[in-house]
Amino acid sequence: MRFSLWTAAAVATVVLVSGGVISSGAFAAGGAAGGRPVPVVYDSDMDFDDASTLAYLCEEHKLRRVELRAVTVANNGFGHPERTLRHARSVLEQCGLPGVPVAEGGTGAGVNPAPAELVATIESVLSGALGDGARPPYQAPGTAAGLIARAVRQAGPPVTVIATGPMTNLAGALRQRGVAERIGRIQIMGGAIDVPGNLYGSALPGFDNSQEFNMWMDPPAARAVLRDARPGTVHLVPLDATASVPITQDYVARLAADQHAPGARITYRIASHPEMAALIDLGIMYWWDAAAAVSAVHDGIVTTPRRVRLDVVLAGEQSGRTVRAPRGWPVRAAFGADRAAFEQRFLDSLNGRR
């Protein structure tokens, strides 16, 4: 079964829940209502996975499944603060969508700064894959939170926000009047509920690795999004689900052989970059953000969705951990993913195939 993103929240209010498990149709969504694309705002920190996800959303936009109304980047995540917006603009231009509005968040280091060694690696990969390393930083008017709020208010149907970085920008937008009420769905890649975290390298000292990076980089913002979002609209794709979608050299080879649209070519150049190849060979790379985005548009990607109440730890060695809490905020979280379904749908959409 498929139904539009903007009706997901309404359907969720009437779905029958048994034993805490929600029917898959209440979690996933796809297509457009009456032929009308679903308005989407994409907020990320523009690392390698985010750039591939943006390429995917561009192709879904051209297929008229979504209407990509705005792209915002957080500068307190894995992207290099002076390059994130340039990379987002490069992806949009190469995909043939130069008119999509973009904006960035502040340039502060954030609550828990991303490991400098990973930021440097990601910058090297994206500059090489996108060919924009020599281009000057892109300047956009306004702030990321302001653009999210404006895009949400100006859309017709309720907007889906896909968030795959620290929640700083989205938390700022939700503080503005009338924004939460106009969002039909918030699809978040973040959190680790029943699995360990994914902290790495210089991020580990002082923490117990129960945290997922996106939540860890700005725990107060993550909690604010759970608190301020309209009840029933937050859908979480945590590490529990993305553990099923590793990036493999076999899949990179499939991309190499199937590049019929800009989205596929961009994603292949990113995934095949030598520095990415080394990380893939270590078995530590996953399609984290892409899984969240594809499952926001298509059914059958994530599995075992459940309604849970979550909170975010703000301090101490578990700062940024997502924890079950009786007085926490309700989210619909996925606990698995169908790897074969994801890989095929991602490849088809990147190539502009219906």
Rank of each mutant, 00 (worst) to 15 (best):
D218S: 14
R307G: 04
P113N: 15
M167N: 13
N214R: 03
L147W: 02
G25F: 06
G156R: 15
I247N: 00
T267V: 13
G133S: 13
V73E: 09
A28S: 12
D311L: 06
L126M: 00
A171V: 13
I270V: 15
G201C: 15
R177F: 03
P326F: 10
T233Y: 03
A243T: 11
L54R: 06
Y42D: 00
E67Y: 02
A337Y: 00
L97F: 05
A340R: 09
G146W: 05
A253K: 11
A325E: 09
H80M: 09
M215N: 14
V111Y: 13
N351D: 07
A180F: 14
I22E: 12
V294I: 15
G328F: 11
A149I: 14
Y251P: 00
E123A: 10
R332E: 13
R309P: 12
S244C: 09
M276T: 05
A103R: 09
Y42F: 03
P219M: 12
T233E: 06
I266Q: 10
I301G: 03
P326L: 07
V40G: 06
W287G: 00
V302I: 02
M189S: 10
D258T: 13
R89Q: 12
G201W: 14
V195I: 01
L255Q: 09
A261N: 08
L282E: 01
P220W: 10
T168I: 10
P231D: 15
H87R: 01
P113R: 14
V323E: 03
G108D: 12
P158W: 04
P305F: 10
R36N: 04
S295G: 09
A28P: 00
T322C: 11
G35H: 13
A173T: 11
D208N: 13
L255I: 05
Q154G: 06
P274W: 13
R269M: 02
T72D: 00
L226H: 08
S295R: 05
L282M: 01
W329L: 02
N209T: 05
S44F: 06
